[in-house]
């Protein structure tokens, strides 16, 4: 039977979040740098991380902003890239203690990210306490926001080539996620990612599509093709 308040303490959650802190800190540095290069002021840059707390979603947002996308494209694009949180939320919910309700539930929902979801569900416990989740979210949130501020300020002192090189952080993060998916699910993953990359490149480079729509079209069409072609994997 589930204990009402659940297992694990705030401290344990915070500790489990330290690897995420490190990963987020370095990725957020790139985010801060990019915002500064695009001309977003310091306060708004920090506000991005405070209110969104989403790696890929924020990078996409700034990308779309800088490329002059329409507000509508921007809104839809961000929604789509964050659509995966829907499934994570569905799965994560079954791992939480019964007393995670009201404000506590809102805080946990706010804190759903790829890495927090992964660490929490891999804990293999169907009764995670609010305190544990709060600890896990705290250290990750701290890393993300500190990194953003530090990255923005680093833009003032880093040499240009190194600043540019730090910009690869985002792509490195995606590539590393892809690598893990590839290891878990096989070569189909690379095929899908490659196909979507090819469509996106074609739309942007050859047809000069706006990046927001191009991104949405590539990811959705490839997902449909994947569902049609690839048989059940489980």
């Amino acid at each position: 039977m589930k204990k009402n308040e659940g297992n694990f303490s705030y401290g344990e959650g915070f500790q489990d979040g330290i690897p995420i802190f490190l990963g987020y800190f370095s990725t957020a540095i790139a985010f801060g740098l990019i915002c500064r290069n695009v001309g977003i002021p310091f306060i708004e840059t920090c506000l991005y991380s405070i209110t969104s707390f989403a790696g890929a979603g924020q990078f996409l947002a700034v990308n779309l902003f800088a490329s002059g996308a329409l507000l509508f494209e921007y809104f839809i694009g961000i929604n789509l890239i964050n659509l995966r949180y829907l499934f994570m939320g569905v799965a994560l919910r079954t791992h939480l203690a019964p007393d995670v309700k009201g404000l506590k539930k809102m805080i946990v929902a706010f804190g759903v990210t790829d890495e927090i979801f992964t660490v929490a569900t891999m804990k293999n416990n169907d009764c995670l306490s609010f305190n544990y989740m709060a600890g896990l979210i705290s250290s990750s949130y701290l890393g993300w926001n500190l990194g953003t501020a530090v990255g923005f300020m680093m833009g003032m002192i880093l040499p240009k080539a190194l600043q540019m090189a730090v910009g690869v952080t985002l792509y490195a993060m995606f590539s590393s996620l892809l690598s893990v998916e590839f290891k878990n699910k096989g070569p189909g993953v690379l095929l899908l990612a490659g196909f979507s990359a090819a469509i996106n490149s074609f739309l942007i480079l050859v047809l000069s599509f706006p990046s927001g729509w191009s991104f949405v079209i590539s990811m959705v069409s490839t997902a449909v093709i994947g569902a049609l072609l690839i048989k059940e994997e489980k």
Partner: peptide, 10 residues
């Protein structure tokens, strides 16, 4: 979607 998003993001 997560995988196809990654391709188009990179």
């Amino acid at each position: 979607l997560p995988v196809t998003a990654i391709g188009a993001l990179i």
